[in-house]
Computed example of a mutant assay.
Amino acid sequence: MNNKGIHSLLPIMLISLLLFVSGCSTTNTSKNTPTTDSATHAQQTDKSATEPASDAKDKLSIMLDWYPNAVHSFIYVAQEKGYFADQGLDVEIQMPADTNDSLKLVAAGKIDLALSYQPQILLARGENIPVRSIAAVVRHPLVHLLTEANGNVSSPKDLDGKTVGYSSIPLYEAMVRTMISEDGGNPDNMNLVDVGFDLIPSLASGQADAIMGGFINHEQLILEKEGHAMSSINPVDYGVPDYYELVLTASEAGIEAKKDQLTRFVKAVQEGQKYVTEHPEEALNILLAHENETSPLDPEIETKSLAILLPLMNEEGQPFGRQEMESWENVRAWLVEQDLIPESVKAEDAFITLQGE
């Protein structure tokens, strides 16, 4: 065929090729893509705009101070009732392997939040661990001097010549010594014995005449259930400052990087605490559903515990979590006096207000 013939066939060949490609494309599209009308498409677009994906939530982690119990109800309620989700948060709740590790883990950025104790925050800062409280959870001491009601100790000065069991913590030694001194006794005359975690058996067996480090919402309730009539002596009545037993803690770097998320966390747990206060039975049921299998909860103990806790956690007319400079100043001054922290530790550096009003 000459060149003229070839050129005359090119337009026909091109048209045929284009028709073939177009046909294949149409066939593949109709085969692999489901047909949707414009209304369905609009619904899908609207849904994606109004329902953000769960992975869009800001992740935060919190480490408890101990195994789950009544004092943590507000956290589990906030999780169960969706208060964290409402604030755009995905919160992971962890238990500590060692109760002494949480502040170090927070400072190292391994976790975002930890439940700790007001004096412990100041002690940590004395060791250059950069942590701060962001909210007060329990506003008054739960650790009391515990004795048997029918024993021979009615006030701290009666510990002269007696044995006091305590749980390895220098803070508790300082507390009982302050109480005895304030009551007119000589703390050097007591026999202070480190019983570790055996506070309950040491008192129940008569090994100790009193224990320091036991909680009125835990050890006291267990001892009473075991048939021991108990007497508790509040350290605040004998020279120990009225400290926040439990506080929410974050690192300085964490507060700077996640201030908005942490503020939303506080708002969510405020809602959680409101629900616990108004529906204590339902709140405890939520807590009990999350008990740790290694530390099962006694519903009777936890019910009594929550009844003790709520008046110490809530402050009429004030937002849950509120903190006062006066409290931090008083605790700091006492710790300095007890040579537990250096003078350089400042109260204003130990806390920040993040709670909503």
Score class of each variant (00 low, 15 high):
E226P: 13
G227M: 07
H228K: 11
H228C: 01
M230H: 06
M230G: 01
M230F: 04
M230A: 00
S232M: 10
S232R: 02
I233A: 04
N234S: 14
P235M: 09
P235S: 02
V236W: 01
Y238D: 01
Y238F: 12
Y238T: 09
G239F: 10
G239M: 10
G239R: 15
P241R: 12
P241H: 05
D242S: 03
D242T: 03
D242E: 11
D242C: 02
Y243A: 09
Y244T: 05
V247N: 10
V247T: 08
V247F: 01
L248G: 13
L248S: 13
L248Y: 14
T249D: 14
T249I: 07
T249E: 15
A250D: 12
E252W: 07
E252M: 12
A253W: 14
A253S: 13
A253R: 14
A253V: 14
I255L: 09
E256D: 15
K258L: 05
K259W: 13
Q261A: 10
Q261R: 10
Q261K: 07
T263Y: 01
T263R: 02
V266N: 09
V266C: 07
V266F: 05
V266D: 00
K267I: 05
K267Q: 12
E271T: 08
G272Y: 10
Y275I: 08
T277K: 04
E278I: 10
E278Q: 15
